[in-house]
Design a binder for these strands. Structure first.
Lengths: 151, 151
DNA sequence: GTCAAATAGTTTGATAGTCAAACAAAAAAG
DNA sequence: CTTTTTTGTTTGACTATCAAACTATTTGAC
């Protein structure tokens, strides 16, 4: 049992590191050299369709609004994000991707989808279900753990 | 099929973010407030038992030796790591955890082990195997992808 | 044996990412 | 109308990072 725990843990840690490293290198070699992996995740959190406010995106990313403001300053300068002041409540800023930003979003999304497709492609329907069950368990453990820890 | 890919991808992304956030908050609320998540990973890479050189640890973490030197300076100052100059080759530094460092290492390790134990606890032997298979597939996809991208 | 080249690690300058705290503008509450 | 709350921005301090210049030591060539 302990052996299995160590093995699964090792794979998780390794997968985690690999994904980050691959995303980072892929960006650096693409036409989007000027985007860091953190900025990529910000672009991902801003998303393609709905418009999200600064507070919403910061919460989604788990960073403070101040940190996001600084990052968005850079992403606006680089041409990936637009700031739009809400007409309804003029304190509120909604963030949206530019055409460039949407292009990058789709590239990143494709990497993620390919990764998962590759993972499950040789699995049967049942096996894919079990993998999903493992992920659901892990996710629910983490959500419960998160609740127990104050902000 | 596409629906399932999106669902698995969503869980993976969410799990990644949660693990990082929980590790970060847990540290901040523990007796080890002065350790960042990156420093925690450095402590993890230095490890409990064998002694590793600066170069080895930097490679394991995927950072430059210069970056590690700076980080180790802080960890030595904070009392988690010891530098030992090799008697065999006096250019070489081996890194080792202090008593405090080992205590923190075990705390972090416990979080990881609890996380995995919880994930598989209600699974049968076969289901745990399938989960493992999914992780192995994912890992092997990532290793192959990594090879295709130059440093 | 000496000197050049290679190796291991450190330092430094520049930049990004982060938070907390001080701040400004607008909306909501009284 | 003020006061309080909310939303976002700016700033100061610190960590994380790399590349490049640097120091100390070992290895290799002669």
């Amino acid at each position: 049992m302990d052996h299995k725990i160590n093995e699964i843990n090792g794979y998780l840690v390794s997968i985690f590191n690999d994904v980050l490293m691959i995303e980072e290198r892929t960006l650096r070699l693409s036409q989007f050299k000027d985007v860091s992996i953190k900025e990529m995740h910000t672009i991902d959190a801003i998303g393609m369709y709905q418009e999200h406010t600064t507070s919403e995106v910061a919460k989604k990313l788990g960073i403070t609004v101040g940190t996001l403001t600084v990052s968005v300053n850079n992403l606006v300068r680089k041409g990936y994000v637009n700031r739009l002041r809400s007409e309804v409540d003029r304190r509120v800023i909604t963030l949206a991707l530019t055409k460039q930003g949407r292009l990058l979003y789709r590239l990143h999304d494709k990497f993620h989808r390919d990764m998962v497709r590759e993972t499950i492609q040789e699995m049967s329907e049942e096996e894919a279900e079990v993998l999903m069950k493992g992920l659901v368990n892990l996710h629910s453990f983490l959500e419960r753990t998160k609740e127990q820890i104050p902000e």
